[in-house]
Structures are given as structure tokens and as C-alpha cells.
Design a binder for these strands. Structure first.
Lengths: 331, 331
DNA sequence: TTGTACGCGTTATCAG
DNA sequence: CTGATAACGCGTACAA
């Protein structure tokens, strides 16, 4: 069932069918109705490939993200899909791991699939040395490209991110105000946003006139909860930090479990902050204090910026906002 | 840059370029090299729309699921995407909510996008009255269709599911063996798998020669943790159940929090079972006992069955397995 | 307002 | 082993 069949059954030309189907202008009401009734009766819809061949678009966005098990990214992906769908775009999903070669490969795959735009979800895509981000700028030469939770300068690149530096700065100061003195930050993988967070911690120490030490940023290359607990235990045997800011809520859960197993009173002896305000923050007793980095708003804005660009309008291609401290039971 | 440009630069016809690019047979080594070098120099790749127009495929799978916030589905989606990608398929994602009209709409959208197959992830797609599942059978007339965690009979329909009836039967008997007498099951939404679970609970009561009562299946139409706690409190004021089997781990978390807030000793006074063996089961203290319904295996098998079918082979279109009890701290 | 004819970039067929 | 040409189904100038 193609446009020729419809045109024949409706007794018109394919041009008329096409017009009815698309813009709809310059068609008499009478023929329109006739054509529409045939279309509906036959359940006809245009072949997307043929249409794509002409229009060079299939109204599809490529969403890339690094890690399927990361609750933050999972959440982000769904909101991105949701907003794009609202604008009539479908989402082609691809989990591409942490290695840059894979990322490049899948970006090219998306481009070859003729997506209308590309989203890179998560700051892992952003390399520390800006020259290494040329692969992103290259991609942006072909289609508009959006980065969630990271910033890369360049034409055709939209960025939406939470000011992580500031968020951790505020968090640390909040902990200092509560009386904490040895605040550490713990993370399991370096990324653009982690660099910002560490930098925020440094700033906070400096603003208090307290010397910052390298050991306050604890690299814990582990993802399994029990193993994290062990790691924390080992670290704390080295020096008695009294507050932990975690890279995400899962880490905070592990720290809380460590504290509970050691009968360390939370928050009295140890204050714990999570990050991302995920469902995990509500699952513990006491509930985790955490930072809401407002993913949904970021996703919405990012989609909006890209859709505008896709519609030929131009407007801002950068959106940032402040994280919000959610103070619950662990501080 | 299209196939004509390449053919011109290589001094051959487009047919030869196409042959080099695809099957590659019946091309002399010499011309192949010549063509390949041009292709690589120009960074050429075929236009997917034109290719799709001929082949009527773009190597894309449509994955539909009901709920973005459901950890189980989130997990499933990622594994499905992963396995399809391994076989060279990309995944078009669509979250379509719980209403059947939306589901139908998005299934049709997927079909109109010419996906090669459709996955329905989650048992919510399966209606209780089998006649209402005709919409699934209809879709399966166009492309192979896979159901994760549910069963619908029909041509071209692949199903992969965990035997939930049996899993809950085993779970309840395990709790009976531990000494529980009043075991309830709690859920927030009816679905095919929930029906199975309730039926498993009934079976277990019967196998023990104990009368099953309707009130043992508690409908709690709530998703927010605090609200669930309240709800549980109200229920338990009505009758003092001593074990709860939850529809998922999130519910189990809420029940555990309720118990902790009431100083009810877990598992001594109250035993709690989760379901799905999600990350949440590891986040609580004590860790949740739960049921591993082996999502990854199911996803792998489902993808395998569909890919076989897409390759024209035929083989089994049904795969089921037994859930595994993970006995941890709450029983 | 409507229809004709061409182009989009492939793959497949068939002739050489 | 290679090339010319016909589909594939649609959108759209341009003509009527």
C-alpha cells in the first residue's frame, strides 16, 4: 500500500495525496475529504524511508550514555526521551561505555543512521584536555549536539548542566557550619563533573582559611557496595574524617552502611552527603542528605534548545543552574 | 558524497561500488582495493534511507515499556539494548505509560517507523482477558514481537518470562517454614505478573492446608515511599500479619522503614521479602531478602529468539525460567 | 486547484 | 567480473 494505490483509489494524483498528507494547503475541501477517507480506510501511512530519502530526516534523536547501571543516567535518559517525544522525535538509544574509542564509534554510528541530533548524557564524554573534545565538535558539524551535565564550547553544541563546583562548595560550607572539620569527597571515576566537585571542595576549604590536602579527595575505584564499605573502613583507619561528600547516592549508602556496621553515630560522629537526589536517598534509615541537581529541568531545557535549533530558530545554547541541598537524616 | 561520486572517483560503475560495499563477491581484488581506498579516503558510508527503501529495514528494534521510574524495567531496557546492539541492531525507545490506547498508539508509531521487531517490556502489556491482547497479535502480523515478562500466544510472538507463580509459591513456603503464619502479598498495580504472584500465594496457603483469605493480597495504589509506610501501618492495625511479600524491592524498602519506625524487629516479628533483586536490596540495613527473577538471562534469550526469527531461522519462541530466592537480612 | 515528471541514493537484475 | 538500468516510495518544482 503506497501513495500510488491511494491516489488511484481516490481518483487523484499522488501529488494531491501528498499535499493532503503534509502541508495540506491548496487542496479543495472536497478532494481532501475523499483522499482522507481512503487513507483512513486503508490504514495507510507514508513509508518513512522514502520520506527520509527526500527530507533527509526521520525525526530521530540519538541518545548516547556511558553506563546503564548508573541511576542518574538512567533517569536522565528517560526524561530526554520523554521531552523529545513531546516534540515528535523518537530516541535511538546507545550505551557506549567509558572508553573514548567506543564513544567515537557510536557517535559515528548515530550519524550514519542519520539522526537529527545527538545527545551525550553524562559528563564522562567531556575530556579534561579540551583538545580531546574535538571529536564532539566534529560530530556537531553534522548535527546539533547536546551535552547533559557537561560543557564543551563550540558551534552547534548545546550544554545543560548543574554548577557542581558551586554545589559542593555550598555543601562543604554547610557541613563546616554544622561543625565538621575534616570533610572528604569520595568518587570512583574521574569525569568533568567530578573535577568540578573536587574543585568546589578545595574552594570551600580555602574560603574557611583551612588548608586543603590531597587526601581529602578519595579515589575509590569500586562500584560494589560491600567493597566500598571495606574501602571506607581502610581509609578511616588512616585518618578520622568526620564528614563525607559522596559522588552519588549509592556511595553514600555504602558509607552509611559502613557507619552502621561500626556503630558510628550518623550524623553526630559522621555526616554523610549523597548526590543526585535519587530514589536511594529515600531508601535508607535515616534518609540521606543529598544534592538535587535538577536533572529533569536540565533535560527539558536541553531538549528545548536542540529542538529550537532543529527548527532553524537560534537561541541560547547553554543552560546552567544551581544544585539544591536536600538536608535529611545523615547531616 | 554518494555512490555516484565514489564510482566516478574510482573509475567504476555504481554497481561495483555497491558490490564492494555489500556482499563483496564477484569483484576482482584489484578493483576492490581501488574502490575501498576511495571509500576510505572520502569517509563515505551509504545513505541509510536509500538503503532502507530497498531493503525495507534499518536494523532497528522498537522497545516499548510502561514506566520510566520502574527500576526493573529500566534495567531490562538496558540489557535488551545491549544484546540487540551485539547483533547489530539499534534500539528505538518509547515509554508509553499504562494506558492501552497509548500503547496501541506507540506500537503503531513503531511500525510506521519500520522497526524490524518490537519488544514489549513488562507484563503490563498483557491484558487479563486474552481477547484484549489481539492488539499484540495484530502487531505481530507485521514484525516479530517479543514480550519480556509476560506470555501471549500467537504467531510471530516470542515470550520470555520468569515463573512468578512458582516463585511466590516457593517464597511463601519458605516463610511458612521459618514459622510465619500470616503472610500477605502487597502490590500497587495489577498486571499479568501480579496475577501470577497472587495465585502463587494462594497455592502456597492451600498446600499448607491453611485457608487463604482475600485480605492477604493487599492492593496499595501508591508509589511514594512515605505514603506506603502509612498505608502499611493502617493495614497492620487491622490484622497482625507476620510476613510480607512485596511486588518489588521498593515496596520492601517501605515496609522495612515502617517496621524500623515502629520498632518492630525484622525478621523476628516481621519477615519481609522483596522482588527483582535490584540494587535496592543491597542498600538497606539489613539487606533485603528478595527474588532474583533473572532479568538478564531473560533479555538475552528474548533477543536471541527474535534475532533468529529475523534471520529467517525458526526456533522456539518461548523461554521461561525459575526465580531464585535470595535470602538475606529481612527473613 | 490539480497533475506530471524528476530526484533522492541504494540494491538487484540482467546483459555483456 | 563489470556496467546499465529498473525498482523502492515519496516530495515537490513546474506545468496546466
Amino acid at each position: 500500500m503506497n501513495i500510488y494505490d491511494i491516489s488511484r483509489k481516490a481518483g487523484v494524483s499522488i501529488a494531491t495525496v501528498s499535499r493532503v498528507l503534509n502541508n495540506g494547503e491548496h487542496v479543495s475541501e472536497k478532494t481532501r475529504k475523499k483522499v482522507m477517507s481512503v487513507i483512513e480506510k486503508e490504514g495507510y501511512f507514508p513509508n518513512v524511508f522514502a520520506r527520509g530519502l527526500n527530507m533527509n530526516t526521520m525525526q530521530t534523536i540519538g541518545i548516547l550514555y556511558s553506563d546503564a547501571s548508573d541511576l542518574y543516567l538512567a533517569n536522565a535518559v528517560y526524561h530526554l526521551e520523554y521531552y523529545f517525544r513531546k516534540y515528535g522525535y523518537n530516541s535511538l538509544l546507545c550505551c557506549c561505555g567509558y572508553e573514548i574509542d567506543q564513544r567515537k564509534k557510536y557517535i559515528n554510528l548515530m550519524l550514519s543512521k542519520k539522526v537529527d541530533a545527538i545527545i551525550l548524557a553524562g559528563s564522562h564524554f567531556v575530556e579534561e584536555y579540551d583538545g580531546d573534545n574535538d571529536y564532539i565538535r566534529m560530530a556537531a558539524q553534522h548535527v546539533p549536539l547536546g551535552i547533559l551535565s557537561g560543557y564543551v564550547s563550540g558551534e552547534n553544541i548545546a550544554c545543560a548542566y548543574c554548577n557542581n563546583t558551586r554545589a559542593i562548595f555550598d555543601t562543604a560550607n554547610y557541613l563546616f557550619d554544622l561543625g565538621s572539620e575534616q570533610i572528604i569527597f569520595i568518587y570512583n571515576m574521574m569525569s568533568d563533573s567530578i573535577r568540578c566537585k573536587i574543585s568546589g571542595l578545595k574552594d570551600a576549604y580555602r574560603s574557611r582559611g583551612v588548608e586543603y590536602r590531597e587526601k581529602y579527595a578519595v579515589y575509590c575505584p569500586i562500584t560494589e557496595i560491600n567493597a566500598i564499605e571495606q574501602y571506607i573502613r581502610a581509609i578511616r583507619n588512616q585518618f578520622q574524617f568526620d564528614a563525607v561528600i559522596c559522588m552519588d547516592d549509592l556511595f553514600a549508602v555504602a558509607v552509611l552502611k559502613y557507619a552502621q556496621s561500626e556503630h558510628i553515630s550518623v550524623p553526630d560522629q559522621l555526616r554523610i552527603m549523597g548526590y543526585n537526589n535519587s530514589i536511594l536517598a529515600q531508601c535508607t534509615t535515616p534518609m540521606l542528605s543529598t544534592v538535587d541537581n535538577r536533572t529533569i529541568e536540565l533535560c527539558e531545557k536541553l531538549v528545548e534548545m536542540l529542538v529550537k535549533r532543529l527548527n532553524g530558530e537560534d537561541g541560547p545554547m547553554e543552560y546552567s543552574l544551581q544544585g539544591r541541598l536536600i538536608c535529611q537524616g545523615t547531616t
